[in-house]
Write a protein that binds this DNA or RNA. Structure first.
Length: 209
DNA sequence: AACAAGATTAACT
DNA sequence: GTTAATCTTGTTA
C-alpha cells in the first residue's frame, strides 16, 4: 500500500532544477478547484534553468509581469497561456531571485475521474488523456487564474511524495519539445518521460491504481 | 499602437 | 504529414 506525504518545502529550494524534474516523475499532483478534487501521477517533465537557459522565459534574468512569478521562492506554480489556448503548468524551484521552473507535461489520471470527464466533456478517461502539457491543466481544471499560488495541502494545487519511483530503465531522457529557437540550449537533455502505457503498468504493479 | 511568435492540440488529408 | 484555432506577451516604432 502506497502512503502519500506532503512534499517537504525544502524539495523546491534545490539548486539543481534538472534533478528536481527527474525526481518529480512518480509523484502525485493534486488539484482542488471549486471543491472538485482530482489528481494524477506525474509522468513527463521538463527543466527550465532560468537566466542561463535560452529556452526559458526568464533567459538573461528577463523580468516582466509574466516572468516575475518565476523569481519568487520555489514552491509556487507558474501558469501561463500558450498559443492563446492552453494553460501550461510549471513548478517554480530554487530560492527567491533565481527563476528556475519545471514544466509538467504529462500525468497519469488517478483520482477524480468523474470530474475529469466533465472537464473534457468525454464519457471516459484513457491512460494517455493526461499526456501533453495543455491536457494536464485541462484535466486538473487549472487556469492562468491560478498563477502564483503556493503548493500545499490547503491550496488548489498540491504535490505528494511516496516511496514509489520509476526506474531509470523506464524513463526516456530527450531534448525539450518546441524550443527550436533556443540555439544550443535546444539540445540539452532536460526532458524526462515515462510513456503512459508503461507508467500505467508500473503504477498497477505498485498498487497505486 | 502595432505586430510577430509561441514550452500546443485536435482534426484533417 | 499538415493546418486551423486562438490571444497574451514582449518587442519595436
Amino acid at each position: 500500500m502506497i502512503k502519500w506525504e506532503n512534499c517537504n518545502p525544502d524539495f523546491y529550494q534545490n539548486p539543481d532544477v534538472v534533478s528536481i524534474a527527474r525526481s518529480m516523475l512518480g509523484m502525485k499532483l493534486c488539484s482542488n478547484v471549486n471543491g472538485n478534487k482530482s489528481s494524477g501521477i506525474i509522468i513527463e517533465t521538463e527543466a527550465y534553468a532560468g537566466a542561463s537557459d535560452r529556452a526559458s522565459h526568464a533567459f538573461g534574468n528577463r523580468f516582466t509581469r509574466r516572468t516575475s512569478t518565476m523569481f519568487e521562492a520555489g514552491g509556487i506554480v507558474y501558469i501561463y497561456l500558450c498559443y492563446g489556448i492552453h494553460a501550461l503548468l510549471n513548478i517554480v524551484t530554487n530560492v527567491w531571485g533565481i527563476p528556475h521552473a519545471v514544466l509538467i507535461r504529462g500525468i497519469l489520471p488517478l483520482d477524480g475521474i468523474d470530474t475529469m470527464k466533465q472537464r473534457v466533456e468525454r464519457s471516459a478517461i484513457l491512460v494517455n488523456d493526461g499526456f501533453g502539457p495543455g491536457k494536464v491543466t485541462r484535466l486538473l481544471g487549472l487556469t492562468t487564474a491560478h498563477n502564483g499560488i503556493s503548493i500545499n495541502s490547503d491550496s488548489a494545487v498540491s504535490l505528494y511524495c511516496s516511496n514509489f519511483r520509476f526506474d531509470d530503465s523506464d524513463v526516456d531522457i530527450t531534448p525539450r519539445i518546441g524550443v527550436g529557437y533556443a540555439a544550443e540550449d535546444a539540445l540539452l537533455p532536460y526532458r524526462f518521460v515515462v510513456k503512459p502505457a508503461k507508467a500505467a503498468s508500473k503504477a498497477k504493479e505498485a498498487g497505486i491504481i
